[in-house]
């Protein structure tokens, strides 16, 4: 007589794969600049919109973005969320703010953290500026900017977000 056994409902089969990740030629140029503490975008030769971080093409036109444009480290909040759960593998403690920000001189938002702010007072159109890590910690990474913090400038009207020149916002 065979003994009754609990059915097998799972096995552990961890998968380890090693990759030599490359960012891409256009992102590499961007990363080389941010290594030096400079935010850059790349302009589409066809529609002239400025992309940050550049990923290799103007996604709208499907053409390579060659021309490099130095951007401001001031930006405008396009939208945001207050996150109450931790990110896997990230030490940031919730609640924290993840925002879509458009740097002055760029036409598209990127995602970054906001801090030194009252979470409940963050709003669309708000002006912010990068808080950089100490220079000796700079690497080929967006993380060179620790976060963005609010600055004392008037809000940008929604219809103007994504159209500011690199010189900034006069209000």
């Amino acid at each position: 007589m065979s003994e009754r056994q609990d059915p097998v409902t799972g096995i552990e089969a961890p998968i380890y794969l090693k990759y030599n990740f490359t960012a891409g030629a256009a992102p590499a140029r961007f990363l080389s600049q941010i290594r030096k503490g400079v935010l850059t975008g790349q302009r589409c030769p066809r529609c002239e919109q400025v992309y940050i971080p550049p990923r290799g093409s103007c996604a709208a036109c499907g053409v390579a973005t060659e021309e490099e444009v130095v951007l401001s480290d001031k930006a405008t909040v396009e939208s945001f969320t207050i996150v109450s759960i931790p990110i896997p593998g990230n030490p940031i403690q919730p609640p924290y703010i993840v925002a879509n920000l458009v740097a002055d001189g760029a036409n598209i938002s990127f995602i970054h953290l906001m801090s030194e702010c009252v979470n409940e007072e963050v709003h669309i159109g708000q002006r912010v500026q990068a808080v950089w890590k100490p220079e000796e910690e700079w690497d080929y990474a967006m993380d060179n900017i620790r976060y963005f913090k609010p600055i004392d400038e008037p809000d940008v009207p929604v219809e103007s977000i994504g159209t500011l020149p690199v010189s900034g916002w006069e209000g």
Partner: peptide
Amino acid sequence: QPFSTHLNAGAGGYFAP
């Protein structure tokens, strides 16, 4: 992924804004 900010808190983090 190396180089990028590690802020992608799943799909909700993307769609909430």
